[in-house]
Design a binder for these strands. Structure first.
Lengths: 322, 322
DNA sequence: CGCGTTTACGTCGTTCGTAACGATA
DNA sequence: TATCGTTACGAACGACGTAAACGCG
């Protein structure tokens, strides 16, 4: 049994039992993987895959058992490497972050710039991925950190650290007379106008929709996008009232007025999620602290080293940093 | 990083930082280990040992961290091998049992004979070792099972399974007139005569001593031995009254009378202790069931596979099997 | 001067990639 | 016929053991 064999085995499973694809991902050749799996099966005396004549069909029950343990072994091996890299003060490394466009565009740049000063050779991958996949990606070691926001429950699937709270804001054309004057808009006002907001608002369980339906209202979501920049553009051309995260707005925008959203649209909390049972590189924790400076360095390190999670401090509102 | 490198590293630590000794134990040469450790340190970029000019002095803090993770990796690797061996129904294997002489002499033989029918090629090592060392030996993968008895608290340091309860009995020469007739002996009677019993009774915290001191009595422990056979011999030659485990006695002994010990001498419970987080070979669990047939096979397997420990049934008294 | 670690060297075993083969959809 | 896994072969790399050198007590 070899760490390489286990790595190949896991890669094949993660590639959907496609040895050729797995071989590319581990930077090796297909016959090499095929052979190593054979050796592993021979040594263990157990078939890991159900095979067709010339294809892998499924994991055997034994394969599933071995897979789980192989993942643990590889995670520990990665942890040793990460620990050692921290220990020797390595200035290079990779950091794969799963997050949304808003965080990537408005929150991460400044934070990344800050940690790049200390880790100039750091290579960062930003990846957008559905919430459901996040847990799996962290656990499989494909990602090092996820940034997730929620208005209700904190996420699961890893070590969860609350970073900051944020609210949504309304974007209105300066020449739009409907809301520019008078009292701040209410839910009933919003329900009367076409809205431009994030795609996620289309889901019935989105916090935005639920805020409306709590009043028996149905929002008129005219345009959606993943991207706050796109939303602003659509608002500028008059397609409706924008609802975006406060991090995404410029209060001095010459064309758009920024108004607070009605209080019934709930506040969100942004969380960092770290893979469990895996040592984080120092820059990963530094990135979290760059996003959320109120976090204690030692609390973070302890929690990331497998100690019990501390009672995290209440995350400050985003606006507090202005 | 290689499993071999980690294995060598752990072996060196377990050999007290003596590479030569470690090399013998892993069946390799000393320069081989030295080299692999060097490679490991080079790859990690971290020194694992504080070195004198020509000797290993101590583990570095980083070395301790790597050591802990290396042990987990090796335990998982062993678990994969054990799982696979179970899966393919391997009939060979090694089983190292830590236990006392009494268990080894009077309890294990029958149980081992039973499992040898199904695993004829099984190689069994019986080892006697102090209670303190047991936890470490199990954790370091040097032993697969410990059998421990206690009158008070169940042991710790692994997955603990209660096997049976047992009492101590008195051994008296048939021609000894002091107790052969009349009422069963009481504590005050015992305190008036020289006793022959186990070495462990010399420890002030032994349950035997405490039973006496609860009455304000001090036992006269004339002879001690590790070995019930020796104790019987000394009783036969008239050195005193024997106190041994009931498993060790033959009721039809032509020379010795067996009497129950006073009820103030507490009952003991024999426990099996399995290493945690390590898959047990089937024969290990079969051995436990051979000793304690009341155990449920599936409960055992589940508990040994890392599931939550079930509420184990009350272990039956040893005498119930007669 | 013995003990134990490190370094040097030659051999052997293993793994790798290229290439050819077989089977499948 | 294109795709994917297995088998065959030659080359290169790496690990091992033997032997020698080096420090320390």
């Amino acid at each position: 049994m070899t760490l390489t064999q286990l790595r190949y085995f896991v890669a094949i499973v993660d590639a959907g039992l496609n040895i050729t694809l797995a071989a590319e991902r581990v930077h090796a050749t297909q016959p090499g993987l095929s052979r190593q799996i054979k050796h592993l099966e021979d040594e263990l005396g157990v078939k890991l895959f159900n095979r067709g004549q010339r294809s892998l069909d499924a994991l055997t029950p034994a394969g599933r058992e071995v897979l789980a343990r192989a993942r643990r072994i590889l995670a520990e091996a990665d942890s040793i490497r990460a620990f050692a890299a921290n220990e020797r003060g390595a200035i290079d490394g990779r950091l794969t972050v799963l997050t949304t466009h808003t965080q990537a565009r408005y929150v991460l740049p400044e934070a990344l710039a800050a940690i790049k000063r200390d880790w100039p050779l750091l290579s960062v991958q930003i990846e957008s991925v559905g919430d459901e996949e996040i847990g799996g990606r962290l656990e499989r070691g494909i990602a090092d950190l996820a940034l997730v926001s929620s208005a209700t429950h904190p996420p699961t699937g890893g070590l969860v650290v609350p970073l900051f709270r944020w609210r949504r804001v309304l974007l209105i054309r300066r020449d739009d007379s409907r809301f520019a004057v008078g009292l701040p808009p209410r839910m009933t006002d919003l329900a009367r106008h076409p809205l431009v907001t994030y795609e996620s608002a289309l889901r019935p369980e989105s916090s935005l929709r639920r805020a409306f339906s709590a009043f028996g209202l149905e929002p008129d979501i005219a345009v959606t996008a993943r991207d706050a920049d796109l939303i602003k553009t659509y608002v500028r051309v008059g397609l409706g009232i924008g609802i975006v995260a406060e991090m995404a707005v410029d209060p001095d925008d010459p064309e758009l007025i920024v108004l607070p959203a009605p209080p019934e649209i709930p506040e969100c909390t942004a969380y960092g999620v770290l893979p469990e049972q895996r040592v984080a590189r120092d820059y990963t924790l530094a990135l979290l602290r760059a996003i959320a400076p109120h976090l204690d360095r030692h609390d973070l390190r302890r929690a990331a080293s497998g100690a019990a999670q501390p009672r995290w401090p209440e995350p400050p509102p985003w606006s507090a940093r202005l």
